[in-house]
Amino acid sequence: MKCRDIRKLNTQSPSDPVTAQLVADHLLSCSACADELGELPAIFVAPPSAIPPPNLTAKIMAQLPASPAIAAASERRVTMRRRTAWGGIAVLLVSLLVFGAYGVLVDSSWPAHVFGGVESTVGRAVLALTLVGKPMIAAFGTLGGPLLLGIVLVSGLSVIGWRRLATPPAAILVEVE
């Protein structure tokens, strides 16, 4: 017999000796019901269920790929494309930061020289990254430090506050266990 059947029986005829015995036997083996007995609102003893629309199966079957293996392969391709795109963005950002920082602190033309000079396509791309990255690094140097400190401070305080709200008081844990 399922827990919800036992809960329902217990609510409907608690004084019946057969029901009482069934409930008692169930409680010996079910810690969940032992915790919940007397604490669960009566309306939640056996709550009503929602009925799915009649054409749900047909709608699902209409969208089905040929086989799970094909569907999984297609999903892997999508995931790989997404990872590649994010990887490209990450490489671009890191390049901007590294070349920009080097341009601000040392020399703007050196990174391009390493990649074949401004005569080569790669060298010109590196020079462009350096020139775009430089103002970003310069702006970060003047505004970014205090801003970053502020963000870290606010985030830290938010996390501490959230943990305090989300962690149940010790009294509840003791009561449950």
């Binding site: 629309p53 089905l64 799970p68």
Partner: peptide, 14 residues
């Protein structure tokens, strides 16, 4: 309904 469809498609894929 939308979620149920998506859940079953995920189930099929995984």
């Amino acid at each position: 309904e939308d979620a149920a469809q998506e859940i079953f498609l995920r189930m099929y894929t995984k």
